[in-house]
Design a protein around this nucleic acid. Structure first.
Lengths: 215, 215
DNA sequence: CGGACCCTTGATAGCTTTCAAGTCAGGTGG
DNA sequence: CCACCTGACTTGAAAGCTATCAAGGGTCCG
C-alpha cells in the first residue's frame, strides 16, 4: 500500500558564497566596535563566532542597520577607501582579520579567489535588494515575520530561535521603532504564531503562517 | 591684489565603474519589458541610450523599483540562474546585448574584466545600501530631495532636470504613494526649492537646501 | 537590595495612505 | 483648427498605521 507522506518542503537555499579567510584571530566583547563609518577600509574580516551588526547613522541620530552577520560571514569588504558602515558586535565574538591588500593580492593571483569575492558581493547585493523591497513596500508585521524567518534560516535553528540582538537593533534594521517591534511580537504571540520563552528566544509555532505573510 | 573666489565645491564622485559591452544592438519602445522577474538570466545588457527601471512585484501588486538606469549603465547581471527583477524601459531606449557566457568567458581570461565586474557589482551594492538607508529612515521630503539630486548627478544635468519617469515610478522607487510624491513636489515649489516648467522637467532653484535635507 | 538596561504597554499625535474628484497635456480624428 | 479622449498629474478630505511620549514591569548583576 502506498502512503503519501507530507514532508516539509525542502528549503532551496543557495549555499552562501564564502571564503576561508586565513588571518589573525581577534576577540571582542559584547557591543564592541570593530570598525567605524568613515574609517579606512584596509582590513577584511570573517566572523568565526558570535554575531554583529553593520549600520549607518544620520546626523540627527537616526540609525539604519544594513545587515546582521553570523559565524562564517565575511564583512568589511569595501569598494572604496573607507568604510561606509560601522560594525559592532552583538555579543562576544571572534573574528579573523586579514589585510585588504593581502586579499587583493590573492585575488590577483588566483582567479578562484576573485570569483569568490564576486560571489560574496553578489550575495550581499541580493540581500540588500530584499531589504529594499521590505523597507519600501512591506508592513510592520511582514517585516518582523521576514526577520524571524531570515534568522531561522541563517542560524540553522529549527523552531527555537536565539535572538542575539535587542528590540532596538531589530527596529533599526526593519525601519521601525522599538515599540512597534515589541507590539508586533505580542500580537504574533496572541495570534499563536510564536511564543516567547524569554525575550531573547522565539519559538516559531506557525511557520507556515509567517511564511505566508512574507510571500 | 588677491581675491578670494568662492567656487562651487567640486562634487567628488567616484567615476562609476563600467565596461564597454561589445554586443548586438537592440531597440525598445517606451515601457517595453527587456526581461521579466524569474526569467533565465542568460544575457547581459548595457544601456546605450534612454533610461529604464528594474523592479519587483509582490503578489498583491505592490511594486518596488530597485533602481533606475541611464546611458552607459550595465544591467541584467545576476549571481543566480534567473533574474530577480524585471527591466522595463522608461522611454525609447537602445541597448547592447551580450550572452552571459561570453562575458563570463572574458572574465575568466582577462583578470581586468573580472575586476571591472566586481567593481560594477560593488557600485550596485553601494547604491542599494543608500536606498536602504533612505527607505528605512528618511521622510518623504528627504526621499524626494535625494532622488532629484541623484538624477541631477547621474544625468549630468546642471539645474534643469529631465525626468524620464512618471510620478508612479518615483513613488515605487521611494516607497511612497503617487499622491505623496505629487504633494511633495508642490510643497518644494511653494518653498522655492524647485520649479516645474512641465511635469517632466524640474528646475533646481535651491540646490543647497535640497542637499541639506539629504545630509 | 539597588541600579541599569531592556522590554512592554497605554494614550495621543502625525505623517502618509486611501478614497475621490478634478485638472492638465498630448495625441487623434473629424 | 478644434473637439475629444485618455493617461498622467494634482488636490482635498478622511482614515490608518506607525511614531512619539510616558509609565510601568522584568531581569540580570554587582
Amino acid at each position: 500500500m502506498l502512503s503519501v507522506i507530507q514532508t516539509a518542503a525542502p528549503i532551496v537555499t543557495r549555499p552562501p558564497a564564502t571564503i576561508a579567510l586565513d588571518g589573525l584571530r581577534q576577540s571582542y566583547g559584547p557591543g564592541e566596535t570593530i570598525f567605524d563609518e568613515g574609517q579606512r577600509a584596509d582590513r577584511v574580516y570573517q566572523l568565526t563566532s558570535g554575531s554583529l551588526r553593520t549600520c549607518r547613522i544620520l546626523r540627527d541620530g537616526r540609525r539604519q542597520i544594513e545587515a546582521f552577520h553570523f559565524a562564517g560571514d565575511v564583512f568589511g569588504l569595501e569598494g572604496g577607501e573607507t568604510h561606509r558602515v560601522a560594525a559592532q558586535t552583538l555579543g562576544p565574538a571572534q573574528v579573523r582579520v586579514m589585510p585588504r591588500s593581502a586579499l587583493e593580492a590573492l585575488a590577483h593571483e588566483h582567479a578562484d579567489v576573485a570569483r569568490r569575492l564576486l560571489a560574496l558581493t553578489t550575495d550581499n547585493l541580493r540581500r540588500c535588494q530584499d531589504h529594499v523591497l521590505m523597507l519600501g513596500r512591506r508592513t510592520a508585521c511582514e517585516r518582523v515575520a521576514a526577520l524571524l524567518l531570515d534568522l531561522a534560516e541563517r542560524t540553522g535553528a529549527d523552531a527555537l530561535l536565539d535572538v542575539p540582538m535587542t528590540r532596538q537593533d531589530m527596529a533599526d534594521y526593519l525601519g521601525l521603532t522599538i515599540e512597534t517591534v515589541s507590539r508586533t511580537f505580542t500580537q504574533f504571540q496572541h495570534d499563536g504564531l510564536i511564543a516567547l520563552p524569554t525575550t531573547r528566544k522565539v519559538l516559531l509555532r506557525d511557520r507556515a503562517a509567517l511564511e505566508a505573510m512574507v510571500d
